[in-house]
Design a protein around this nucleic acid. Structure first.
Ligand SMILES: [Zn+2]
Ligand SMILES: [Zn+2]
Ligand SMILES: [Zn+2]
Ligand SMILES: [Zn+2]
Lengths: 242, 242
DNA sequence: GAACGTTCACCGAGTTCA
DNA sequence: TGAACTCGGTGAACGTTC
């Protein structure tokens, strides 16, 4: 098998994994699954490389701790299943050589979020919450509508940069930001002098655009709620087309 | 994200417009079915764009969960079949860029309605399914016999008016109803005086007639039920001839 | 048949503990 | 340290509706 070439067609999902292949022929579940680092039995792809459980954990721990190992020998130790624990420096080097990617280790911040989310879910699962089925359904509808339509990161507002920054007219010879570039935000306090106030009016069309967008979001949210639609039908009022 | 589409040949105007391929060669396997997002084999239009099953599911899940992905790189990752799982942010961005429409994802409310309707139909379909064929047959027989023999409007009782109304002997010079005419029913309260009680006995023949009619109806109903007929044969009892 | 949703093994991250 | 876990994302296969 091609040695762990980084461009390897790792897309081989073993089409015979299903109903077992020991039909008699091939008779070889034969695991090409060999750790690219130490040669032990691999358990799958870990950080983009087929490795064993040991090298998987070793790589994550080493990278996360950020320690720098030192080889007591000539930095060319052979890494085998039996000797992999002898030299951490060469083991880690081998991990990197075969292509294990440190960027596939979750960041500490991502971990925090994941842990918090999981704790939350655990709690919610263990607290039955004496709610009616209808109540739970309504809650689900509201949550889904909110999640679908609320841009929690406000990334859509990136399309609504003002044509000219408010602080540009400032006499200060500051680092003049390029128009439209997302730099120097929020505006510096010195930008709030009243000498720039007249320009505020020139921003009105921009504010109008943003308001339109926000109202659109709210309408989309409301459209996902049956109570709103039924009220609309009863009153014959239709949401404005935008 | 205009620059994230170097290999973005998704602008192919019509991969398979119309029933005939452009090649003219009939019997064209036409593997123009390529996912506009990742290049994998597409399975049809999903949310307004020709995509594979993976991108279809990914798009629905991502939108419904409302999560906001963050690209660990420069937000210009190439999306291919092999690498599409590497960066969810760029994959979702590509989905939106090629025109996948989030408004074609069913809202939670629509899903709940769909699920409820399906449960209802399933239940209605499986409820009778829980019965034996014989049981279902017997139910049909009973219903048919009932519908054939039960006079749900009691219109037949119109033939059994008493020859003389109970309240006729009353001294009151009321509107003496013509015999056999369906008027002034139910009897007025003043007819219930005990001075008319002796006349009740004169009604006995009338009651007998009515009872006879009703029993007749019941017998006719029973005759339409095979279980009754077989019991009759076994015990040698025969229904009274009327 | 097209295009929605649903299901459910499977995969690979992290996590636990001897 | 690593074998054995938890668990959420993934996507091929499938069910349903029009
Ligand atoms: Zn290993
Ligand atoms: Zn070494
Ligand atoms: Zn795709
Ligand atoms: Zn990216």
């Amino acid at each position: 098998m091609s040695l762990s070439s980084p461009s390897d067609g790792k897309n081989s999902p073993h089409p015979l994994l299903g109903p077992r292949g020991p039909a008699g022929d091939d008779a070889e579940p034969e695991e090409e699954k060999v750790c690219a680092v130490c040669g032990d039995r691999a358990t799958g792809y870990h950080f983009h490389v087929m490795t064993c459980e040991g090298c998987k954990g070793f790589f994550r721990r080493s990278i996360n701790k950020g320690v720098r190992f030192t080889c007591p020998f000539s930095r060319s130790c052979l890494i085998t299943k039996a000797k992999r624990r002898q030299c951490q420096a060469c083991r880690l080097q081998k991990c990197l050589d075969v292509g294990m990617r440190k960027d596939m280790i979750m960041s500490e911040e991502a971990l925090q979020r994941r842990r918090a989310l999981r704790r939350q879910r655990r709690l919610a699962r263990e607290q039955p919450e004496g709610l009616t089925a209808e109540q739970q359904e309504l809650i689900d509808i509201l949550i889904a509508a909110h999640q679908r339509n609320f841009d929690s990161s406000f990334s859509q507002f990136a399309h609504y940069w003002p044509p000219v920054r408010l602080c540009v007219p400032s006499p200060r010879p500051q680092s003049s930001p390029q128009p439209g570039s997302p730099a120097a935000w929020p505006p510096q306090p010195n930008c709030l002098d009243e000498d720039v106030l007249p320009d505020v009016f020139s921003m009105l069309p921009h504010f109008a655009d943003m308001s339109t967008f926000m109202i659109q979001q709210i309408i989309n949210f409301a459209k996902d709620i049956p109570a709103f639609r039924s009220a609309e039908g009863a009153r014959g009022t239709s949401p404005p087309r935008l």
